[in-house]
Design a protein around this nucleic acid. Structure first.
Lengths: 244, 244
DNA sequence: CGGGCGCTTGAGGCAGCTCAAGTCGTGTGG
DNA sequence: CCACACGACTTGAGCTGCCTCAAGCGCCCG
């Protein structure tokens, strides 16, 4: 049955709390211009909502590209392997974020994605997105906007990597987590890192020891508290100032 | 007059050698699945084909986003300014490449684009692309593919920046230029750098002196010849091996 | 022909890496 | 439930690759 038919035959749905309509991070995956009706359409697309445990793979580099993945809860890292065989982390992704956009181009994932903790995922088959976007231009536009934003993010990261010293990189990293993790939680200034120091260092182009040292010195300066993976921001203005 | 009308009223065109149909880099801007008819449509979109001199701006950071730009010939750098006020180059772009995709997301350019030498540009109004892609899905798909590829490129660059030593960065940079510049020219192994050592260093996260030194040592190893901005690749396999 | 920019090369310093040792926290098996 | 073991983290010491500062050359353009 074609998706178009499916949509027209759709009855008023029974409340389904796994539906996007009730998803607490909906406004993050689908930020704008998607009205009630369109949510129902998207809802139909979401094939499954698998739950991943720590170290479970969402996809491997080289896998055929089928779906985009929206993170409902949890945390995921994506990484590629450099030609030297070293693993290089390209990003950390949290609830409300969409991954897999880089695979559309040649229909294959060029990085691997692993859960850093218990994580719930919405898999959205790309074929369906393409089909639906013929009828609902807003969805295609939203995908385009998200991709554009991803390009911008990557380029900002490139700018940071090219010019920043170790302390700046760590400060920016923490500030970025602050904006992405805390704005959607009750805690205002405390969050738990889902990744190791080594993974942070890998991502930032630093050794794990340097990450540790710089976090210690940020603590000595009264800017953050560090208790293993629990980070508390004590002076956000100072933290932000270091990034600049 | 709406674009749709314009298309239906279109007569068989007089040969226009500035048209995309006769553009030598067409297969690069519009790599796949765009047939003769669709080229005519795109052709109508291209508002103007301005010629830029060295140091002319294509757009500034903060400008309202109106058009995507395809480079017909020449070379362009894009850069943003870090919060510290430093200029950070995010990319070099050559004939057949498309720039401005990162501006779609919030309708504003977040980097500036400057010609590094005499450069001819096709400006393609994004509004028109959006309108046309309602009728010609292949065009929207092509934009999506190009964006996806840009994300991938940026992420590969991030991986490189995170893990590579100076010599590797310079070697990869030269190898990347080899693939992008030489494949569309007659010369097999010689090309002219359109940018300064300082710009290369800025892009790669190195000082200009380090770029110079590493190029000298690549020369001493018999891998490249350097004659000011004229680079000749003497041992491509060795060059590629260094990147790995 | 002169001035300036782009580039090369040298010398010295330092940020961050590597190696190493020791602590702490967590998960696992008895 | 406790003990043990291993992985994660911190901190120290020494090393090195890249940066900074500096001087000099050469090419290009006015």
């Amino acid at each position: 049955m074609s998706l178009t038919k499916k949509i027209s035959q759709r009855v008023i749905p029974i409340k389904d709390f796994s539906s996007c309509a009730y998803c607490s991070v909906r406004r993050l995956c689908l930020p704008v211009s998607v009205d009630r009706e369109e949510i129902n359409i998207i809802d139909d697309l979401v094939a499954n909502r698998p739950s991943l445990n720590k170290s479970d793979y969402l996809f491997h580099a080289g896998d055929k590209f089928n779906s985009l993945y929206a993170i409902k809860s949890g945390a995921v890292k994506t990484y590629g392997s450099t030609k030297g065989g070293r693993e290089q982390i390209t990003g950390f992704h949290f609830s409300g974020e969409l991954i897999g956009l880089d695979a559309i181009g040649n229909n294959m994932h060029n990085c691997s994605a692993v859960a850093l903790e218990k994580t719930v995922i919405c898999a959205i088959p790309y074929k369906s997105i393409e089909e639906v976007s013929l009828h609902v231009p807003a969805i295609q536009q939203e995908i385009t906007r998200l991709m554009s934003r991803e390009i911008r993010n990557d380029e900002e990261m490139l700018m940071a990597m090219g010019s920043m010293r170790a302390e700046q990189r760590v400060a920016c990293f923490l500030f970025s987590l602050y904006r992405r993790l805390l704005l959607r939680s009750k805690e205002k200034y405390t969050f738990r890192l889902p990744m190791t120091r080594e993974e942070i260092g890998n991502y930032l182009g630093l050794s794990l020891e340097t990450v540790s040292r710089r976090m210690s010195s940020l603590h000595e300066d009264g800017i953050i508290d560090v208790e293993n993976r629990l980070i508390t921001l004590r002076d956000i203005d100072a933290l932000q100032a270091i990034c600049h």
